[in-house]
Simulated assay, not measured.
Amino acid sequence: MLRYPWKIRILMFLYTIITFVYVYRTGRDFFHPLAGVLSVMILGSTLPFLNCAVQVRGYSLSIMLSAISIYHIIRYHKIGRTKDIILIFFFGLLIDLHNTIKYLRSYIIDDIMGIFSRVSMFYQQTNNIWS
């Protein structure tokens, strides 16, 4: 365990700040400056976002990558720059990689624990540990 658990949450807080920046930029650049401010206020006041903002589970990373991707998708459709296509592909790849690792990690741990429990039960039965 960490001696100071708040240190690991700093990275999640950074992801949250970057999410706020991109949500604000999406509202400001494509709609109205007031839309950017209201979007950040609405996002920052929702309970699911507040609950997930500094949890060390990857929720804030997923939200940040999604906000960046949405910004570049809208910007590509408005402006049509090739740089945005590359960024959309890159951040989409990061989202897929993050979700794959997140889900595979839980499945692999479940499989390992299942195999371990079956092997230990077999070992107990063959060696008559409980009798």
Results as ranks from 00 to 15, higher is better:
43 L>W: 01
78 K>M: 09
40 V>H: 00
88 I>D: 06
48 P>M: 04
52 C>H: 12
30 F>K: 07
39 S>V: 01
65 L>N: 01
43 L>R: 02
62 S>D: 07
54 V>T: 12
73 I>R: 06
47 L>P: 00
88 I>K: 06
51 N>M: 08
81 R>K: 12
59 Y>K: 13
44 G>W: 00
59 Y>R: 13
33 P>T: 03
36 G>V: 01
70 I>E: 10
86 I>P: 06
47 L>W: 11
88 I>W: 10
45 S>D: 05
35 A>S: 04
62 S>A: 13
76 Y>G: 03
47 L>T: 10
50 L>V: 01
59 Y>D: 14
40 V>P: 00
34 L>W: 14
40 V>E: 00
77 H>Y: 13
34 L>A: 11
71 Y>N: 11
68 I>T: 09
32 H>A: 00
84 D>E: 14
58 G>L: 10
52 C>V: 05
67 A>L: 10
55 Q>V: 13
43 L>I: 02
89 F>Y: 12
41 M>E: 03
84 D>N: 14
85 I>G: 03
74 I>S: 01
42 I>T: 09
58 G>Q: 10
77 H>I: 10
49 F>M: 06
57 R>G: 11
71 Y>V: 08
66 S>H: 08
31 F>E: 12
48 P>L: 02
86 I>D: 11
50 L>S: 03
71 Y>M: 09
76 Y>A: 06
40 V>R: 00
83 K>Y: 15
72 H>V: 09
78 K>E: 13
33 P>I: 02
59 Y>P: 08
35 A>G: 00
76 Y>T: 02
42 I>H: 01
53 A>V: 02
55 Q>R: 15
64 M>T: 06
74 I>V: 12
32 H>P: 00
85 I>M: 09
66 S>F: 15
66 S>N: 12
79 I>G: 04
75 R>L: 11
86 I>L: 13
83 K>T: 13
39 S>I: 02
74 I>A: 00
46 T>F: 06
72 H>C: 07
64 M>S: 06
87 L>E: 14
48 P>T: 01
69 S>M: 11
77 H>T: 11
86 I>C: 08
30 F>M: 09
88 I>F: 10
61 L>A: 15
59 Y>N: 15
40 V>W: 00
64 M>N: 07
34 L>E: 07
57 R>N: 11
44 G>Q: 03
35 A>N: 00
54 V>I: 13
32 H>S: 04
67 A>P: 12
88 I>H: 10
34 L>C: 02
79 I>P: 02
66 S>R: 09
42 I>V: 14
36 G>S: 02
82 T>W: 15
68 I>K: 07
87 L>P: 13
35 A>V: 05
55 Q>T: 15
36 G>H: 01
67 A>E: 07
41 M>K: 03
64 M>W: 03
62 S>W: 05
58 G>K: 11
56 V>M: 10
89 F>N: 10
64 M>K: 05
87 L>N: 14
79 I>D: 06
84 D>C: 08
60 S>C: 08
70 I>D: 09
82 T>L: 15
30 F>N: 08
47 L>K: 11
43 L>F: 06
85 I>A: 05
33 P>H: 04
36 G>Q: 01
39 S>C: 09
55 Q>F: 09
